[in-house]
Computed example of a mutant assay.
Amino acid sequence: MSKKPSDFELQILGVLWESAPQTVREVRASLTDEKERAYTSVLSVMQVMEKKGYLRREKASSGNADLWSPAVDRAAVTSPLIRGWVQQLFGGRPSAVMQQLLDGDSVDASEVAEIRRLLKEYESNNDVS
């Protein structure tokens, strides 16, 4: 990867990281920004992403549609982006990021439980007291 993916490329990667392989039509239907995009536009971006090394495709065993999958690991792409945002927007403080997320209205009890589980796992694996 020579440079970071665009916002739209990240959105496509996000869809495929959650569930792959998928056809272009399936990816297009799963995009979360609710913009109306032509099939050919999505296909064109995905073909460019393949050339950049972000995606790979294979012929489907039945039908004409290709199946697309991420060619890069989520952490390899997102970790540098997130570290940059934490540094630029929150003075390098992960706790400030967490506070910002918790102040939002999209955190329910199951998310809080998962955050607690992740913190306990982190503490046991990293000798944090």
Rank of each mutant, 00 (worst) to 15 (best):
S62T: 11
R83W: 13
A75Y: 10
D73R: 11
S69Q: 08
M98W: 06
G91I: 10
L81V: 06
G84Y: 02
D66N: 10
Q87P: 01
L67W: 09
T78K: 13
L67S: 01
P94S: 02
P70S: 15
V97N: 09
W68G: 04
W85T: 02
K59R: 15
V86W: 00
A60K: 06
V86D: 10
V97D: 05
G91T: 05
A96Y: 11
P94K: 01
W85A: 02
D66F: 11
A71Q: 10
L81S: 01
R93S: 12
A65E: 11
R93E: 09
R57E: 00
S62A: 13
G63Y: 12
K59F: 03
R83E: 14
Q88A: 05
R83Y: 12
P94A: 10
R74A: 15
Q88W: 01
W68Q: 05
R56I: 07
V97M: 03
T78P: 01
A71E: 00
A71C: 04
R74D: 15
R83G: 07
R56T: 11
A76L: 01
T78C: 13
P70H: 10
G92K: 10
P70M: 09
W68F: 07
Q88E: 08
R57K: 13
D73V: 12
A60S: 15
L89G: 01
A75H: 12
V86R: 12
A65F: 07
R74F: 13
S79R: 15
A75Q: 13
A60V: 12
R74T: 00
T78Q: 15
R74E: 15
A75F: 10
F90S: 04
P80I: 15
A71H: 13
